[in-house]
Design a protein around this nucleic acid. Structure first.
Lengths: 143, 143
DNA sequence: GCATAAGTTACAGTTACAGTTACAAATAAA
DNA sequence: TTTATTTGTAACTGTAACTGTAACTTATGC
């Protein structure tokens, strides 16, 4: 796979916003910390706005602002907002082969179990958990 | 991600082999059941040979043969043989930003926990578990 | 009006996967 | 020994996704 880094970038963005509570932060400022370009940041910010985690304001002195409590935002929430895909993807086996049918059914069940186990771990962590230390460090020495 | 279907295809291949114990099966026959082409099957078979799960024989009446007990081969074994990638990939944030550093460290830990939880589910299932029913169906009605 | 900034679209570059073709090497069977 | 079969591998193509860049529109504050 050419893998997406949308999920870690989204967490990074939200952490950045949580370090500036109540302020509108520009995609340009965020892009510097993430080490990417403002358009990439805005694309992901758009998904976070759709999910209701962030609000944005166009124009001078505009930007993005965190709209939820970092303690109440789980990593699973973030993951599902920006990365809706499932980990495993089934292939499309021969439709008339009974062996293929059996494999498909059983494997899909295992895939679901594995995905759920993974998601349970993400659900157990909040944005606060992963951003608290980072924000403290940040406030002592800005980028 | 453009996602790989190597893992489910590998399970399918191994199930097919387990339905023909002691026989050498050609990549062509397997390809028909998987609904792909023989070269794709041989590529994955090559990984399974490297992992020691399968042996192969070139030439007339050659093919691939299962070399392990389906009850002792976990889905995690198969997954790791054909799909070495990690689910989540970190981005490369600004090296001098303390906020970025903190996020990176904490997120990596969460990624590891989530990946481990997923792998534990795969480790709990054997090839036998997912192939048993399929093989029975298959022996009643071949593809 | 002007500067700033989000939002969107379009395009190029990169990477990964899947499928196909081709061919050398190995092996069994005639 | 010759022939047919089959693996193993390399090369190439097409497709899809992600990233980065540029250009443009829209919205807002000064």
């Amino acid at each position: 796979m050419s893998k997406s880094t949308r999920f870690p970038v989204a967490v990074h963005i939200l952490t950045f916003l949580s370090a500036h509570p109540g302020e509108y932060v520009s995609s340009d400022a965020i892009a510097k910390s993430v080490a990417t370009n403002p358009v990439a940041v805005r694309k992901i910010l758009g998904m976070l706005v759709k999910a209701g985690f962030v609000s944005s304001l166009a124009g001078s002195r505009g930007g993005a602002k965190l709209e939820v409590d970092p303690q109440k935002l789980s990593l699973l929430d973030i993951y599902q907002a920006v990365e809706q895909r499932e980990i495993f993807q089934m292939h499309e086996p021969h439709p008339n082969c009974p062996l293929a049918k059996g494999v498909k059914t059983d494997l899909q069940q295992v895939f679901d179990l594995a995905q759920t186990a993974m998601e349970r771990q993400l659900a157990a962590q909040t944005l606060q958990d992963v951003s608290q230390k980072a924000v403290l460090d940040f406030n002592q020495a800005m980028c």
